[in-house]
């Protein structure tokens, strides 16, 4: 196995594990993440609670499993929405050109002028705090990057002979966009999607660390860190464990993204 394959493999393995835990965890580990028991708050690991309990005596393992699901779902849906909208904007801008291109490029540039995290922060306060709105904030954070890269791709593909030939044969512009530009951008899109997941997850859980994400009692890894930091001295596991879950996801995304990037760069 070459080095880059090994990287991709470990990344996939890590992510596969995290996604499996998030999907199967709630089915196999049936303790509720919401059930409080104040007499047993801030406990360390015990047979009943393998990872201990939080400040309200809720089972930490269960909260991490559910939180992982929520955090991953927000990141995936955010990048998916932002990526889809950004690609549509970029592809049409590059292919159609004209006033639409000017408009779309202008919008992209304005969004890019705002530092990414700040943009997501401002969007997040305009909307009410909820998982869906957090993923919208992530989507808008992701959008300009996709738009810019896909616009360049469309400009490149527009000049390809098969695209010109399709146009000469009388294909409509919408058909060319759907059957030539989009399929040929897909490999690029997959790579971008994976690469943006890590910054999306960091942004999403960062915002909810600041209290702008899903509100309690919903478990989300970032907001768990936020409540856990009050008990940093008495119960450090409240901060350490959710952080490990976030970090493992990000390592997985980064390894997979790098592997894909290099595979693409080597052209095979």
């Amino acid at each position: 196995m070459t080095k880059r394959n090994r990287q991709t493999f470990i990344g996939l393995l890590l992510l596969g594990t995290m996604v499996t835990v998030a999907l199967l965890g709630p089915v196999l580990y049936r303790i509720s993440p919401f059930e409080q028991d104040l007499r047993r708050s801030l406990e360390g690991p015990s047979p009943d609670h393998p990872l201990g309990t939080d400040e309200l005596g809720r089972d930490l393992l269960s909260r991490i499993i559910h939180g992982l699901g929520i955090t991953l779902l927000i990141s995936f849906s955010g990048v998916f929405l932002g990526g889809a909208a950004g690609s549509l904007l970029g592809l049409t801008a590059g292919y159609f050109g004209g006033w639409w291109d000017h408009f779309a490029t202008g919008c992209t540039e304005v969004l890019m002028a705002i530092p990414g995290f700040l943009l997501a922060l401002v969007i997040a306060i305009t909307l009410k705090s909820s998982p869906l709105n957090l993923s919208l904030a992530v989507a808008i954070f992701t959008l300009p990057g996709f738009a810019r890269i896909l616009r360049a791709k469309a400009l490149e593909l527009r000049e390809q002979e098969y695209v010109i030939a399709a146009g000469a044969l009388g294909a409509r512009r919408r058909q060319i966009l759907r059957w030539h530009l989009l399929p040929n951008s897909l490999p690029l899109l997959y790579t971008l999607f994976v690469q943006r997941l890590s910054s999306a997850l960091l942004t999403a859980s960062g915002l909810s660390f600041l209290g702008l994400g899903p509100q309690p009692p919903l478990p989300e890894l970032g907001s768990m860190l936020n409540t856990g930091r009050e008990y940093l001295w008495v119960a450090p596991h409240l901060c350490i464990l959710p952080g490990i879950a976030i970090t493992l996801c990000i390592i997985g995304f980064n390894l997979l993204g790098n592997g894909l990037q290099r595979t693409k760069a080597n052209g095979n």
Binding site: L202, S205, G206, F209, G222, L225, L232, W233, G243, I251
Partner: peptide, 13 residues
């Protein structure tokens, strides 16, 4: 891959 807020908390700890 370390989130800044988590790294910060670990360093404080």
């Amino acid at each position: 891959s370390l989130p800044v807020y988590w790294l910060g908390l670990l360093l404080i700890l």
